[in-house]
Design a binder for these strands. Structure first.
Lengths: 336, 336
DNA sequence: CACACGGATTTGAACGTTCAAATGATTCTG
DNA sequence: CAGAATCATTTGAACGTTCAAATCCGTGTG
């Protein structure tokens, strides 16, 4: 089904059909309706390759998939879904690609742009020393990152979750639920994300005058968390609570708690971070990242960049949303 | 960088450049080398939109993303990565799309084909009554499924994991490790996948003459598994083992075991299914699906269909691979 | 030495779309 | 009522590629 077939059916020229879709105000109302009828009747949809060729724009955004399947899988994979949902709103589609292990790091990026398969990228799993932002900027290829850009203070095309606000909300929630001893399990000091999340907890427990606020740290992982959870559980005691920097850590703590015969909620308040499926299935209260809004923001940014607009004046932080689960219900059915 | 610029640089016509890439045997050796030099020097890569337009083929495969983020997330999301890795080998790329909740079920499929964004689909999360296979076949749009096709016995364009072989390997492994009482936790009878997995365990434990083989069933979910795990643990007793139909179920059993103070391995042998990240992080022995091979097979099938080849004579089953973890080490450091 | 033959290379056309310019139809103005 | 102005519509050209047909050029043959 091509534009010419529609034109023939509606007894107009191909350009009138084109105008009907792109500049309806240029077409006389009567003709407009008639053409629209033909379009609907024939189910015409313009061919993407033709438009891409004509416009010299792919209308697509590249997305490197290596990260999915890594430790941060819980976040990046739902984020990809959020991007796919948001894409139609920005008149674009996604092209995921995986740079094979054997090939140069950035080959996937250069190939997809050079072949005009994509005209911009969404980066995930950005980290200090990440070569991608500078590499792309040097070639003036538009990009936006989910996650802060550590290399370059001046970079503004990024969106991230407000970890501080998240753990603050977690601490608020625990106090509200009646927990009086609130610990924190995070990652070793030095990672900006981790420090941010720790600080939200620290400031907020202080604000509420919580007395017992032990903390511990370990690498991201369930076994790692279980290993260091002991002293933390001792410190907050039965009936205390722990805020974790990630859902994996929370699950590790859960295992440690179960091993001592503590049950989630009454014996231990527990809050994770990221809104992973597993946390939900375990009944752990968690901080859900607003991935739909973040995805929308990312696509809006690259869309504007492609239209030649100036980059935003700063990166964007999005507050996570606390989803209460059984793990923070202190009195399942009863009065305080 | 277009073919014309390369042609000018190499002092030949555009068609010679085209032939250099597509039919090198038509080009005189001397010219060939000279043109190749220009191509390398200028870093030319043919434009995908042009080729798509000319060939009337997108060279892309559609992939519906709704399923990712669902309960089967653990499998579909790594499968997408496997597809992305395999895609370059089949000279194609992926176009993931999400049918928004508000819109008709199959709109994503019809739009992407009509716009020539994709020319085939890989289906996941197929289920009895799935409208997609017939809908696509009626329109003679090539497709292949990861998961059996329940509607249509005659369908052969699918690949799936051999659940029976998987749980059989699991039972073998447990016997080999010295476990003498081996139970099974699966899904309610009726789901073909679940029944298949149950049977592998049943047949193999019988073969080894295992005496104590209790079983139980519940819906897919961690809490659900924990809820029904009690009697099963009682039946196999301390030092027994349990094979599960999925990793989520295994984690549910793990929680029940931890609550009784049992430790994985010595007190309870535990095996999950699917090779999820979480199972790995929990140290649970699991059956990893060969997603890379399955992805490769799927893309090969649609590629052949697009070339007009006849569909395969039957669907393909792939045996999962058992990855041993601490959860099936009966004697951490010692003799039997 | 004219001529057919073969391989190497070039030119024309087309894929479906949209921009720019040209044409056609209508109304307004003097 | 001729001519200008405005609006609606059509035609030509181009995006980069590849297929098909045409041209070129050196060789061997009658």
């Amino acid at each position: 089904m091509t534009i010419n077939e529609v034109a023939a059916h509606a007894h107009v020229s191909r350009q009138t059909v084109s105008n009907t879709l792109n500049f309806p105000e240029r077409v006389r109302p009567g003709t407009l309706e008639q053409v629209r009828e033909s379009i609907d009747l024939l189910g015409y949809q313009p061919s993407a390759p033709s438009q891409q060729l004509r416009h010299q724009r792919a209308g697509a955004v590249g997305f490197e998939l290596n990260a999915v399947g890594s430790t941060r899988n819980d976040v990046t994979s739902p984020f990809l879904v959020a991007l796919a949902v948001a894409a139609p709103r920005h008149a674009c589609h996604l092209v995921p690609f995986a740079s094979g292990d054997a090939r140069p790091m950035l080959s996937g990026y250069s190939e997809t742009v050079q072949r005009h398969l994509v005209d911009a990228f969404v980066l995930v799993d950005t980290h200090p020393g990440d070569p991608r932002p500078t590499w792309l900027s040097e070639r003036s290829i538009p990009w936006v990152a989910f996650g802060r850009i550590w290399n370059d203070e001046a970079a503004t095309t990024w969106a991230d979750v407000d970890g501080r606000a998240g753990t603050a909300a977690a601490a608020d929630h625990l106090v509200e639920q009646g927990y009086e001893r609130i610990g924190f399990l995070g990652w070793p000091t030095g990672s900006a994300v981790g420090d941010d999340r720790r600080e939200g907890w620290a400031v907020t427990t202080a604000k509420h005058g919580v007395d017992v606020t032990p903390q511990a740290a370990c690498e991201q992982g369930i076994a790692e968390a279980t290993a260091v959870a002991g002293p933390l559980l001792d410190a907050v005691g039965r009936g205390g609570a722990i805020v974790c920097a990630s859902d994996a850590l929370a699950i590790g703590v859960l295992h440690a708690a179960l091993s001592r015969g503590w049950s989630l909620g009454p014996d231990l308040g527990l809050i994770g971070f990221d809104g992973s499926n597993t946390a939900d299935m375990c009944g752990i209260t968690t901080l859900v990242q607003p991935l739909d809004r973040i995805a929308d923001h990312c696509l809006a940014v690259v869309h504007d960049l492609l239209d030649g607009a100036a980059p935003p004046t700063s990166g964007s932080l999005f507050e996570p949303h606390l989803i209460p689960g059984p793990s923070t219900i202190r009195n399942p059915k009863g009065t305080p």
